[in-house]
Design a protein around this nucleic acid. Structure first.
Length: 661
RNA sequence: GCCGUUGUAGCUCAGGGGUAGAGCAACGCAUUCGUAAUGCGUGGGUCGGAGGUUCAAUUCCUCUCAACGGCACCA
């Protein structure tokens, strides 16, 4: 066999995607194959997949292989355009701003970024000139040529050039990795490749989007770099479509809609804490009542615990040591009453803190009295208002705030109950997410981190329990290795916002540690004292965040049961005022959130305004309706009208406003 | 917290060294109208805050606060 292959070395067989086999001399390149097939293909091709691996067209092929030639319209081409565009960006920046060091420039969703090290950070004002330079480089059409360098030579080369970050990258590459360098004209960069044939292939449908600070290797203790984000597409039409799509997404922004629909506001004096307006708070209450019904049915008991607790308490829970920088700490002294004087006459010695979490307080309730194994599991729920001293730069509308309310609960249970409790939780979560319109969410299983407590066996058991729960509940998941809490693994349930950012909403965390620290125990069947385990769990996560997500996902057009105003009765003439008033009263008596619009305005004006306010139903009444005891129903999102008798319409609407549970 | 951008009327935004302007909203008057903006009129701003340069600062400079986009951190 080996002998025969050797004999045939002068010919290799290339299998094309359609199954056709062509023979070539070893060393043939992707471009050579393309040229052999047709001239037009050679013109269009930008890369090759050899046995499924994306490679440069210039790479010689020494063995028989299945190949496919990649053209600009293939999906993978977009990845290459973006990656090559990042190289073009880097060259442009180094040319325009000598002394700038390059670091890394990976692709991301819809584009790419490149991190640069430069004493003076870039500004968006620099974009125009950089983009112009990039266009020149594209126009120049330099071939991307691939070279393999000796590791030490490469390190020396980059160090001599003052490219310390690149040198560090090369140094850290695994020994098995070849050091590949790609040239484009006079400029070169360390790169895994592959690349398209020339810079011209990048095209001109690219745009620099924003600058941001970023840290070298994602570590805030390391050097501050400047990151330039860009996007690149096959055609100008695709780029335009993408930019339009971003604009459309911005219209769904909950901060914008929150203002337009008069739901809530934020202001400087209480940054990170929400002022809920009447309409916004209706959403909150509807959501909370719904959750309360769900939780009660699922065997939870609701509690309420203190906001402010002594530092001693937080020392015992471990928060004082591990979490203090995220807490709001309050001196436990009577402040000085002298106007204009010091806030405190003496340096405060005793402190209290606003709770950042509900768990330690729940353990206190558990600890009252004696618990038997028969009492377990205990599912203790609280719509707990927590404060966390978040970094200023982290705050973001309703999504990331300093005061938030969790639909929190802690399940105290025995180890043998973890699996069934986790499964029940996953099922409850899925049902609730479905009710709220989220059939698409991502689940992550965060496994044991490097710094952790507990035995390997207990981690094995806990991770498996969570995994089995997910599988039994039929939930697909990704593993986030090492992302678990130090005390136990966790599940994270993520939902995307309008701009595609992923937010953790639900969570399930296994914690054998806190019961230990706070001395929770129960009497077992054997008459001995045992430690319960604790499951920390939330479904919405934070009510603030979840409402933000709801607003964005529905673009403000909330389901009827969550709509702040469910029906507006609008008059056409003042002759219908008395009748309209009557109709509104009937709606309100039926428990429907209804308002009267009897303003002296044209019906067009009212229709427009209530449509923009996303009111689900508009009941229009004029002289005719008043005489016939009817209403003309206009449904949000449709243009027609449906004329019905009041009694009938009322009956239908009363049913429609019912919450899903 | 770090980097960049922004901050002008209730909202959306224009302007710019000689103390401000539009549309919408508000208010008043007229209009009573049939499914996405009726007309006319009136009022409204220490131009985010503090300091500096200048004869003069909302405009230029410095500092500061906040928001926005990322990074880091996290529900």
């Amino acid at each position: 066999m080996a002998l025969q292959q050797n004999k045939n070395l002068s010919v290799i067989q290339i299998t094309l995607p359609d199954g056709a086999v062509r023979e070539f001399a070893p060393g043939i390149t992707g471009m050579g194959i393309a040229e052999n097939i047709s001239k037009s293909l050679a013109k269009a091709v930008i890369a090759i997949k050899i046995n499924g691996v994306l490679s440069d067209l210039s790479l010689p092929i020494d063995h028989s292989a299945s190949i496919s030639l990649i053209k600009r319209e293939d999906d993978v081409a977009l990845e290459m355009i973006r990656h090559d565009c990042a190289h073009v960006l880097a060259e442009a920046v180094q040319k325009l701003f000598p002394g700038t060091q390059v670091t890394i420039g990976p692709n991301i969703e819809n584009g790419f970024f490149y991190d640069f090290a430069r004493n003076e950070p870039f500004s968006t004002d620099d974009f125009l000139v950089i983009e112009q330079e990039m266009k020149k480089i594209v126009e120049r059409g330099s071939a991307f040529t691939r070279e393999v360098w000796d590791r030490q030579d490469a390190i020396t080369y980059f160090k001599n050039k003052g490219e310390n970050f690149k040198a560090e990258l090369i140094q850290d590459l695994p020994d098995t990795e070849e050091i590949k360098i790609y040239r484009q004209g006079d400029w070169l960069d360390l790169c895994r490749g592959p690349h398209m044939p020339t810079t011209k292939h990048v095209g001109t449908a690219f745009k620099l989007m924003k600058v941001a600070g970023a840290y070298w290797r994602g570590d805030s203790n390391k050097a501050q770099l400047t990151r330039i984000y860009g996007t690149a597409w096959r055609t100008q039409a695709e780029l335009d479509a993408y930019l339009t799509q971003i604009e459309e997404a911005e219209k769904r922004d909950h901060r914008k809609l929150g203002k337009e629909l008069d739901l809530f506001h934020l202001q400087d004096e209480a940054q990170g804490s929400v002022f809920w307006h009447p309409k916004g708070y209706i959403i909150w209450q509807a959501l909370e009542s719904y959750m309360r019904r769900r939780l009660r049915h699922a065997g939870y008991e609701e509690v309420k615990t203190p906001q402010l607790m002594d530092a001693r308490f937080w020392e015992a829970s471990g928060h004082w040591g591990k979490y203090r920088e995220n807490m709001f700490v309050v001196p436990d002294v009577v402040p000085n009453a002298d106007e204009g004087g010091k806030v405190f006459k003496e340096e405060p010695k005793h402190f209290m803190a606003l709770k950042p979490m509900n768990c330690p307080a729940h353990v206190q309730i558990f600890n009252q009295g004696i618990k038997s194994y028969r009492d377990l599991p205990i599912r203790m729920a609280e719509f707990g208002c927590c404060h966390r001293n978040e970094a200023h730069g982290a705050l973001h509308g309703l999504m990331r705030v300093r005061q938030f309310t969790q639909d929190d609960a802690h399940i105290f249970c025995r180890e043998d109950q973890i699996a069934s409790e986790s499964l029940a939780f996953c099922e409850l979560l899925r049902v609730i997410y479905h009710d709220l319109g989220f059939d698409q969410f991502k689940v992550k299983l965060a496994t044991r981190p490097e710094k952790r407590v507990g035995t390997e066996e207990s981690w094995d058991y806990a991770e498996n329990a969570l995994k089995e729960a997910l599988e039994a509940a039929g939930l697909a998941y990704d593993i986030a290795p090492g992302d678990g809490a130090f005390y136990g693994p966790k599940l994270e349930f993520h939902i995307l916002d309008a701009i595609g950012r992923s937010w953790t909403c639900g969570t399930l965390q296994l914690d054998p540690n806190l019961p230990e620290r706070l001395g929770a125990q129960y009497t077992g069947e054997d008459g001995q004292k045992h430690r319960p385990l604790m499951l920390h769990r939330a479904i919405l996560g934070s009510i603030e965040r979840f409402i933000g997500i709801l607003i964005e996902n529905y673009a403000g057009k909330l389901p009827l049961w969550l709509s702040p105003v469910q029906c507006v009765v609008a008059t056409i003439t003042s002759e219908a005022d008395a009748y309209a008033q009557q109709v509104v009263e009937q709606l309100r008596s039926a428990g429907i959130r209804a308002e009267l619009d009897a303003r002296n305005e044209k019906i067009n004006y009212k229709v427009r305004e209530h449509s923009l306010q996303k009111v689900p139903y508009l009941w229009v009444v004029g002289k005719r309706e008043a005489e016939e005891h009817k209403v003309a129903i206009r449904t949000l999102g449709s243009e027609g009208q449906d004329i019905q008798g009041v009694a009938e319409a009322l009956k239908t609407l009363t049913q429609a406003v019912q919450p899903p549970y």
